[in-house]
Design a protein around this nucleic acid. Structure first.
Lengths: 124, 124
DNA sequence: CTGAATCCATCGGGATACTG
DNA sequence: CAGTATCCCGATGGATTCAG
C-alpha cells in the first residue's frame, strides 16, 4: 500500500507555506485576480469591457492578470477573427468551481470586515 | 424605498478591489499569514515554537506577521512574566471563525491544485 | 527567549508610449 | 480593438546585528 500518503514530496523548505492552500492564497491574493474572477463569474467579458468595468486597473495589469489566470486554466481566452478583432474572456469549468470557496471568503469578509477595522482602530 | 441598494457607497476607485473580499484576500495573501492561522488554529504556540515549526520564516517576518494579525484582532498575544519571558500566541474567537472559509479554500486547493499545475505545464 | 533596528535585494504594479 | 514595451517607484521580505 501507499505509505507516502501524507507527504507526497520532500518539502525541502517552507513546510506549510508550500502547501496548496498557501499557494492558492498567494495566487489569488494579488491586486486584481479576484475582481476578474468575480466579474467573469457573472458572464463573459471582452477586453475593453473589463478595462472599463474595473476602475483603476491599467491595461498592462489587466493583460498580465488575465494571462496568469489563463495559464492556470482558470480563464479561457477566445479570439474572434473579426475586424477589428474581438477577444472574449470567460471562466473555465475549473475557474467556476473556484467561485464556491471564494464565496465563502466573501461571506466571512462582509460579516467580519468591520470587526477587523474596529480592532485595528482600537489599537490607537 | 431604498433605491441605492446596489451601490451603497461612492466607490471612488478600484470598485471591487476595495470591497471586503479583495481586502481580505490581500490581507491573508502574504507569505506567512495563512500558515500562522492554520498552525494557531490547532493550538496556542510560543514564539520560538512557531519559528521552529515554520521552516524558512525569519524572526523578523514572524514578528511582523503576528503583529499584523494581532492588530486585526485575529490573534491574541499573551506575555507571561516569567524568567526568561514566555509569550503565547493563539487565535481569538474572531480568528477562529476565519478557519471556516480558509478550510473551504483549502479543500479547493487540495482538490484542484494539481489541475492548475498541469494546465500551467501544458502551456509549454 | 523574544524581540527591535538596519541594510539591501527583489518584485508587484503604475505611467507612458508604441503596435497590429 | 486589443494588446506590448520601457521606465520607475514603493512595498515585501531576507540577512544580519543589537537588546531587554
Amino acid at each position: 500500500m501507499v505509505l507516502e500518503h501524507e507527504l507526497p514530496r520532500p518539502v525541502p523548505s517552507d513546510e506549510l507555506a508550500g502547501c496548496p492552500v498557501g499557494k492558492l492564497m498567494r495566487r489569488v491574493g494579488d491586486k486584481w485576480t479576484l475582481v476578474l474572477i468575480v466579474l467573469l463569474g457573472g458572464r463573459a467579458h471582452r477586453y475593453n469591457e473589463l478595462h472599463r468595468s474595473i476602475e483603476g486597473i491599467s491595461r498592462r495589469m489587466l493583460t498580465r492578470t488575465l494571462r496568469g489566470l489563463e495559464a492556470d486554466g482558470l480563464v479561457r481566452r477566445e479570439v474572434h477573427p473579426t475586424l477589428p478583432p474581438t477577444v472574449e474572456y470567460s471562466l473555465t469549468p475549473l475557474g467556476r468551481t473556484l467561485l464556491v470557496p471564494v464565496s465563502a471568503m466573501a461571506e466571512w469578509a462582509v460579516l467580519h470586515d468591520a470587526e477587523m477595522t474596529r480592532a485595528r482602530a482600537a489599537q490607537l
